[in-house]
């Protein structure tokens, strides 16, 4: 057995201190230690995107970052981004468009889409599809997700005037 490592990080705005085994990846840390189970696990080898979280403001694969690597950094999960309200319009668009069925891919989809939307402008459908191309959804066939992201981009652009 190897020694655990002390880490201090911010998770959804709260400071968290923990002792973690170095092999524990961030998605497991969030789910098992902090019970933030909105971050899902679909493959643990970096392909499906279900584990997407934000690390220092940028999306990453939660299963490909070790919790020890996040020491001193700030992590945001779908729970945090929901509570802060920043995803509200995107979530509304997903709901209206039924852009989720089982919902397992959804947290990763939302955070991934939000990164594209944050760039501003109204991306075309091809750009949206391309940006979301690392996030697997078995249920929807993607079109409703693309629609919801597109709608949100339009609405935000209109709101910016």
């Amino acid at each position: 057995m190897t020694a655990t490592v002390s880490i201090t990080l911010t998770v959804n705005g709260e400071t968290v201190r923990a002792e973690v085994p170095p092999r524990m990846h961030l998605a497991d840390f969030l789910r098992e230690r902090l019970a933030l189970t909105g971050t899902h696990i679909g493959c643990e080898h970096g392909v499906c995107g279900a584990c997407t979280v934000r690390l220092d403001g940028e999306i990453v694969r939660g299963c490909l970052v070790l919790a020890v690597q996040a020491n001193g950094m700030s992590v945001e999960t779908v729970e945090g981004a929901s509570d802060s309200g920043e995803l509200q319009d995107l979530q509304d668009a997903f709901r209206e468009r039924n852009a989720l069925q089982c919902g397992y891919c959804t947290p990763g989809m939302l955070l991934t889409a939000q990164e594209l939307l944050a760039k501003g402008g109204v991306p075309d459908r091809e750009t949206i599809r391309e940006h979301m191309s690392g996030n697997y959804c078995r249920c929807t066939g993607y079109q409703a997700i693309v629609d919801a992201v597109e709608t949100t981009a339009r609405n935000r652009a209109a709101a910016r005037g």
Partner: peptide, 21 residues
């Protein structure tokens, strides 16, 4: 009409068996 159970899933508040302890 939108599905009533979506809000929970959209906020990461679903409960899948894999989430349970």
């Amino acid at each position: 009409v939108p599905r009533p159970n979506l809000t929970r899933l959209l906020r990461g508040r679903g409960q899948y068996v894999s989430d349970m302890t």
